[in-house]
Amino acid sequence: MSDIAPRPGLLRRLAVNKRNLAASGAGVAVVVIAVAAAAVSLADASAEPDPAGVAAAVPPSAVVSAPGSPSASPSASPSASASASPSAAVSKPAPVAPEPVVPRTGWIAVDSAAWKAQVDAYRALSFEPAPASVGNLPEFRADCEYSHSLPDDPIVAPGLPGASHMHSFFGNEGVDAGTVADDLVRFTATTCEPKQDHSSYWVPTLYDAATNKAAEPTGFRVYYRSLMSDSAKQLPMPNGLRMIAGDAKKKVPTPRGATGQFYCAYWEPGHDADGVARSTNGNWPICEKQAYLHFILQFPDCWDGKHLDSPNHKDHVAYGWNNACPASHPVKIPAITFDIQYGVQGSQAGYYLASDKDVRSSSSMHGDAFVMWDVDTMNKRTKNCVEQRRTCDNYGYLK
């Protein structure tokens, strides 16, 4: 197994704390950060969903310093500080770093006020005129590069570094096991275009079975699209939404023609997506020289409108059916689709995923999405591209 890289999210949080301490001799900024951190503590994992009275978790977009909060105010006025004796100043206790936010899992309620504000802003938008050349595929996208690998999963095993199999991360560069929604807002360095996408996306790391070396993706495109024939009642995606597609525990063979297999991508007539041959165990295609291994992973397009996460990270979302969302999940959101390219063409030895070293099939392929966008950008892209059913790229209309 490859060496584990330092956890970038942890290093960044430590750096942020150091800067906060240096900037606030009286500890004011530190306390403000503690207030903001406490505001994003999420619902207890053991709680059951209660549609009538779920305590709303404050999303990161709504977290600000509370100027009227007693805990956010200095303990003494500037004039009082100026008149203090030198001995009193020396004996003043040193500022204490805030306790880190403990990630939670389970049923996590959306902040209903913040979600209502986003929906109101979305509905107030008008369609921006699209050039006549724009296609009618209802989608926009983010193109991301590989960021880092860690045996962490801030959705399935939050706050437990090293508790997961190895994952390859894309997008937000500060993500590790301790990442919470607020971190995605503060740590905005990303490998994605557009930069307004602060989300984190990850999949199990792929290994070459002959060398046991990681084969990291050379292309990672995230589509946000409509899977339905019309976009009536379309809404944007809420920030802080977490979800998983696929099954990390599934370990069954993936022979030629099986669902859930990797395929060979090469856009020419007569090309065989299943490959010109198979690996020795039959689970992996061997591509012709112009093609590379790809995988498509489709996420749900319907949401319950109440929870940002659920105990199994799937029950709060659902796949639409017959061009409609089920009554249990009535909110139509853009469907995330991972289109992943690996810079390999297959081999007799084949490959294996970090989630399945035994069967060495691709059936355990899965993906995680921890969504965090600039709200205005998410709203405009959803309105112009998905609801209006026009083809967009990373920055707007695809002309």
Rank of each mutant, 00 (worst) to 15 (best):
residue 32 V to Y: 00
residue 52 A to C: 06
residue 368 D to K: 10
residue 325 C to P: 06
residue 218 T to N: 09
residue 223 Y to Q: 12
residue 328 S to Q: 06
residue 276 V to G: 00
residue 178 G to R: 10
residue 396 G to C: 05
residue 54 V to P: 00
residue 123 R to C: 12
residue 274 D to Y: 05
residue 341 Q to D: 04
residue 355 S to A: 10
residue 273 A to T: 13
residue 177 A to N: 03
residue 249 K to H: 12
residue 252 V to G: 00
residue 379 N to S: 00
residue 143 D to S: 15
residue 319 Y to N: 11
residue 346 G to K: 09
residue 111 D to Y: 05
residue 289 K to I: 09
residue 238 P to L: 07
residue 155 I to A: 04
residue 124 A to E: 05
residue 11 L to E: 06
residue 293 L to T: 10
residue 67 P to Q: 11
residue 212 N to F: 12
residue 58 V to K: 05
residue 93 P to L: 09
residue 33 I to C: 03
residue 332 K to G: 02
residue 395 Y to K: 13
residue 133 S to V: 14
residue 55 A to L: 07
residue 201 Y to F: 15
residue 326 P to G: 01
residue 318 A to P: 00
residue 157 A to I: 06
residue 97 A to S: 11
residue 376 D to K: 14
residue 74 P to C: 07
residue 194 P to M: 10
residue 68 G to A: 13
residue 272 D to G: 09
residue 271 H to L: 01
residue 100 P to Q: 01
residue 290 Q to A: 15
residue 392 C to A: 03
residue 213 K to S: 14
residue 290 Q to F: 13
residue 384 N to A: 07
residue 341 Q to V: 15
residue 121 A to T: 06
residue 67 P to S: 15
residue 49 P to D: 02
residue 191 T to L: 02
residue 281 N to W: 10
residue 138 P to C: 05
residue 97 A to Q: 05
residue 396 G to P: 00
residue 382 T to R: 01
residue 326 P to H: 00
residue 86 P to I: 14
residue 312 N to Y: 02
residue 379 N to C: 00
residue 271 H to C: 01
residue 35 V to S: 05
residue 274 D to L: 08
residue 376 D to H: 12
residue 83 S to R: 07
residue 50 D to R: 01
residue 196 Q to I: 12
residue 46 S to R: 13
residue 297 L to R: 00
residue 84 A to P: 02
residue 301 D to V: 08
residue 304 D to I: 03
residue 120 D to M: 05
residue 279 S to H: 04
residue 105 T to H: 10
residue 58 V to T: 14
residue 29 A to K: 14
residue 175 V to M: 04
residue 111 D to S: 04
residue 311 P to W: 05
residue 66 A to F: 11
residue 247 D to W: 07
residue 141 R to A: 12
residue 59 P to C: 15
residue 147 S to K: 06
residue 184 L to K: 05
residue 256 R to L: 15
residue 186 R to G: 05
residue 211 T to Q: 05
residue 44 D to R: 11
